[in-house]
Amino acid sequence: MSEQTERKATLLDGTATARAIRAEIAEAVRAFKQERGIVPHLAAVLIGDNPASETYVAMKQKACGWVGMESSVHRLPSDTTQEEAEALVERLNADPHVHGILVQHPLPKHLHETAVLDKVSVEKDIDGISRMSLGALVNGEPAFPACTPAGIIELLDRYRIPIEGKHAVVVGRSIILGKPMALLLLNRNATVTICHSRTPNLAEQTRQADILVAAVGRAEMITGDMIRPGAVVIDAGYNRVEGRSGDVGDVHFESAAQVASYITPVPGGVGPMTIAMLLRNTLLAAMGNYPATK
């Protein structure tokens, strides 16, 4: 490999970091069980027969097993009514043995997804995507933050990358990633710009970033010439491209890695951190100690 094409950026290894976090959580779960006789319990709500949702829920169950937590899956058929879906969530809210509730989305199209999510009590909303949790994030009040943005913040912290006083540019505005990401960065005293696929002259905005988070859902949309030299690049995208094997991020890795100081790979960057934060939030919920969203 020539000097001109050698990668300059340091990899932000989400796989190794998440492994370390899981070890910490497993020890905390053991201590909590010994002290209080309580095993944290994550309950997943799965409505319909979406194969991807089945896979995601199975991954989360497996992760719970890794750290000694209990997990359960509560399935409803595709023709479930709004009332039945909300009633299931209410039953789980009332169950003292359930500490965290995860409503796997997307839900079947005939259901009002936001209304179902809003039924999850803020104390058990370990996925952090109900309007109550998001409202707390806006106000900087205690609640669980959405797991992927929280995982990104944790990854930056673990690598001791400063956030305060930095200019962060978030490309993407989804309710589960872009918007909460911007708020978490703002709550950590970054100056935040939110962009999206329709932002005119996007490269002019991204080249101003000290921390650039790509969460727009378009394969390799962010290229090296759109990045300020020395910026920290977080790729939160997972895309399938016809004719290519594996997942592709929102960042063109090869060109970006020539310019950035730090960069996350896809896979092995943001994804493992999301699961780690889900486990941590479940433990905190069992302890009755959900965090401030700052």
Rank of each mutant, 00 (worst) to 15 (best):
D13T: 07
T114N: 15
I101C: 01
L11T: 11
A87H: 06
G217M: 05
E86T: 02
L137E: 08
D235Y: 02
I152T: 07
P106I: 09
E154A: 12
M1R: 13
R207Q: 11
A115K: 10
G48R: 04
L184Q: 09
R240T: 08
A236E: 01
P142Q: 05
D13F: 03
A257F: 00
I227P: 03
G14W: 06
L185D: 06
H97E: 14
N189F: 08
V122G: 00
E90I: 15
A146F: 13
P272K: 11
R131S: 15
L137A: 14
I129L: 11
E70V: 13
M1V: 14
L92Q: 06
P145W: 11
A146T: 15
E35H: 06
R30N: 14
M226D: 04
M287P: 01
I263T: 09
L111W: 08
S2P: 15
M132S: 15
I222Q: 06
M287E: 13
L185T: 05
N281C: 04
L284Q: 09
Q61C: 13
R173E: 06
R228K: 15
H105C: 14
L183I: 15
G246H: 02
S174G: 02
R30E: 12
G249P: 05
Q82Y: 05
D225Q: 04
V251K: 02
E164G: 14
G135S: 11
A146D: 12
L88H: 03
G269I: 05
P108E: 07
P162F: 07
N139L: 15
G237M: 02
T114S: 15
I38P: 00
N50Q: 09
K294H: 14
V241H: 04
T274W: 09
A44S: 09
E70I: 10
V29H: 08
A28F: 10
E113R: 01
R36A: 04
P51F: 10
E54L: 13
A58E: 10
P51K: 00
T55E: 07
T199W: 00
M277Y: 06
E254F: 09
I263Y: 04
I161S: 03
P267M: 10
S255N: 09
I194C: 12
E24R: 13
I263K: 02
L117V: 03
I161F: 00
T55Y: 12
E141Y: 13
L11H: 01
H97I: 11
V39D: 14
N50T: 08
E3L: 13
G65D: 07
V233S: 09
R173P: 04
A182V: 11
A182G: 06
R188C: 05
L42V: 00
N239M: 09
N139G: 15
C195K: 01
H97N: 12
R30K: 10
R198V: 12
L88M: 10
R188A: 10
A203T: 13
V103Y: 07
V39I: 12
G140F: 11
A26G: 11
A215I: 00
Q4M: 15
M287Y: 01
E113G: 09
V192N: 00
A285D: 12
S2W: 04
A58M: 11
A44K: 09
Q104K: 03
H97S: 13
A231F: 04
V29A: 06
R158Y: 05
M277I: 12
L156Q: 01
T17R: 02
Q82W: 08
A146H: 14
M59G: 11
V122N: 07
